[in-house]
Simulated assay, not measured.
Amino acid sequence: MTLTKQHLVNTFEGARNNNSPYVFVGIEAEGIKEVISIPSVSFDAKEQFYNNAYSNKLVHVMNSKVKIIGLTHGYPEALTDLV
């Protein structure tokens, strides 16, 4: 399944609706994978950042070698959904 900005919006919305403490964003940058943990206090700012910095297919607008490859929200245990 190819992720899109709609998945990004749905993930942040789901996190807010479920009072999730974190949104987790899986990133692949030039073959290196990482997971970014975003606390609820930063949801609005980081959602806006990702909306501006990534294309509809979640590829970074300034570097096509950087893309979002996974999204989830919840407690740290939710990380198993991304790794």
Rank of each mutant, 00 (worst) to 15 (best):
H60G: 06
V35K: 02
N19C: 08
G70K: 03
T11L: 01
V41P: 06
K46G: 01
G70F: 01
Q6R: 13
Y50L: 15
Q48S: 14
D81I: 12
N56C: 04
T72C: 04
N10D: 14
D44Q: 14
S64P: 14
V25L: 02
D44L: 12
I38A: 01
V35W: 00
H60C: 13
L3F: 06
K5W: 08
E13H: 09
D44I: 15
S64C: 08
E28D: 13
V25Y: 01
A45K: 13
E30Y: 08
E30L: 11
V41K: 13
R16S: 09
Q6P: 01
V9T: 07
T72Y: 00
E13T: 15
V25E: 03
Y50P: 08
I68G: 05
V83E: 11
S55I: 03
P21E: 08
I69C: 01
K65S: 15
V35S: 00
T2I: 10
A29W: 00
R16Q: 14
I69G: 00
V61F: 10
F43C: 06
F49G: 03
N17P: 09
A15I: 10
G14N: 11
V35T: 03
H60D: 10
S40V: 14
P39H: 08
T2C: 06
T11V: 03
L8I: 02
I68A: 04
V41F: 07
I38K: 02
V61M: 08
K65L: 13
E28S: 12
H7I: 00
V23N: 03
N56S: 12
P39T: 11
P39M: 07
V23Y: 03
V9A: 05
L58I: 01
A45V: 15
F24E: 04
N19K: 12
G14E: 04
A29L: 00
Y75M: 11
N52L: 13
G74R: 02
M1G: 13
A15R: 06
I36N: 08
S64K: 15
D81Y: 12
M62T: 10
N56F: 06
H7Y: 02
I38R: 02
E13L: 13
K67A: 07
S42T: 14
V59W: 00
N52K: 13
A45M: 08
L71T: 00
N52R: 11
N17E: 14
